[in-house]
Amino acid sequence: MRALAKTAPAPTTVYLVGGTTAVLVGWRDTTLYVDMIMRPEHDAMLRAILARKEQLSINVEFAAPDQFIPVPTGWESRSPLVAQYGPLTVRHYDLTAQALAKIERGHVRDLNHVRAMLDAGLVTPDSLRTTYDQAASDLYRYPAVDPVTYRAALDALLAEPVKPPRPAAPESR
């Protein structure tokens, strides 16, 4: 991201998604893809991403929850800050939206990520229900999503008990 920031012609925000968020937050050690989006997009930065991708032998995907499920407006303001590198702001894409996209997809790994997010207090059952309810009226715009199955998956996941967050380890001196 520091290298990418050097190519930013104007203030830009990168939103990290999926496994990238999981690695940075700490519930996964590795990811196969750096999933992200950039707002606004700049050709110079897209070219720099391509060059760094090859240099670092990593996969980069431009993907975000709003490509798969409806996400209520204001997701940008709900996207936690990761870092600031000059004109480049790096954020996690709205964590509740990420969790809902994972629930809709329904893969075992995705559901485990949502459980980890709940256990860590990064999302709450109330935020998942509220955000789902706010976006449900726009599900018709996503014909691949079955609203009944999606809601049932959300309800099933939320019926599971949430583990209390682990206390932070004491700092060593």
Rank of each mutant, 00 (worst) to 15 (best):
A168T: 13
K53P: 01
P9Q: 12
Y85R: 10
A48L: 04
D138Y: 02
M1I: 07
L139T: 03
A116Y: 03
S137P: 02
E171W: 04
A48Q: 14
E171R: 12
S137C: 05
D35L: 00
D138A: 11
E171C: 02
L95M: 14
G121R: 09
P167S: 08
L24I: 02
A120I: 05
I69M: 07
H42W: 14
V108W: 04
I58G: 08
K163V: 02
D133R: 08
D35F: 00
V25N: 05
P9K: 03
E76K: 15
T124E: 10
N112H: 13
F62L: 11
A144P: 04
L50F: 06
S127L: 00
L128H: 00
L4Y: 11
M45K: 03
S127M: 00
H92C: 02
E104M: 10
T149E: 04
Y150M: 04
K163T: 06
T13D: 14
T31A: 10
Q67V: 03
A51S: 14
A83C: 02
D35G: 01
A44K: 02
L32H: 09
E104A: 11
R166S: 15
F62G: 06
L122A: 05
L128G: 00
R173D: 08
A144C: 03
S172C: 04
P9W: 03
D119V: 06
L46I: 09
A97H: 06
T21W: 03
T73G: 14
R105D: 11
T130F: 00
D119M: 09
G19S: 09
D110W: 05
S127V: 00
L4H: 13
A97W: 07
D29N: 12
T89E: 15
V23P: 09
T7V: 05
V145T: 14
T12N: 06
V17N: 12
